[in-house]
Design a protein around this nucleic acid. Structure first.
Lengths: 116, 116
DNA sequence: TCAATATATGAATAACTGTTCATATATTAG
DNA sequence: CTAATATATGAACAGTTATTCATATATTGA
């Protein structure tokens, strides 16, 4: 493969892109966050938590599936700081970690013209 | 499993969440978009295209890897309307599809305190 | 039309990941 | 302490997916 005809026009962009490319670690972290919110079962949890904080029992009630499955998914979301947890007696209460999460969900929906 | 002690407080949220839960189709579409931007190789392409439109040759130059691999990844991003393409002679020139994409990337970075 | 360049794609394999099942930990009531 | 409730987790299997290789399509110039 040889340079395309836009050598002059595009090469600068390519060079800048290579220079400003985030390191492997940063790419991996961003990747992990997006992966964590890209699975249908986990997306449902996030949409559910838009209504407010909930304990695991009620999350299962809202999104369906098994307690074990939901718990595994909560772990992944929590590891990526997409949701946060606090213990309250026998229960663990989950909620969205910050405004960014809500904002990203809404951006995705507007990108898709969702009516959510 | 039985209702937790926050029955009164959380049950309403769970009920609202179940009622307002997007349908399987919509969840699947949002899922597909996030999946498409969650792979390191594809994230690199998106970060590269922040510098402006580029043809495949220069994308390969910016992100590394093989022409075939990059082309496969471009296809997935394009199918999810995360990037758009236009042909220009022998070349196909790619660019970010809309402001949403840039906004999501920046939100993810600020979520992670990236310096990008 | 032919050769060269640029990009795309089908198939196959290897790596990854979600779900399930069984079980473990933690908290509270008695 | 014991039983019951609530949540978490390790292992294994099944389904998904990225990458590679070979090849196909598209465009341009001669």
């Amino acid at each position: 493969m040889k340079p395309c005809e836009h050598e002059a026009a595009h090469h600068l962009a390519a060079q800048l892109a290579a220079e400003n490319m985030p390191g492997e670690e940063e790419i991996a972290r961003v990747s992990a966050v997006f992966k964590s919110i890209s699975e249908p079962s986990r997306l449902k949890i996030l949409f559910a938590l838009r209504q407010g904080e909930m304990c695991v029992y009620h999350i299962v009630e809202a999104v369906g599936g098994t307690q074990s499955g939901v718990s595994h998914q909560l772990r992944i979301l929590r590891d990526n700081r997409v949701i946060k947890a606090r213990r309250d007696g026998q229960n663990v209460v989950y909620s969205l970690a910050d405004e960014h999460v809500l904002a990203v969900l809404e951006l995705a929906c507007s990108h898709l013209n969702c009516k959510i």
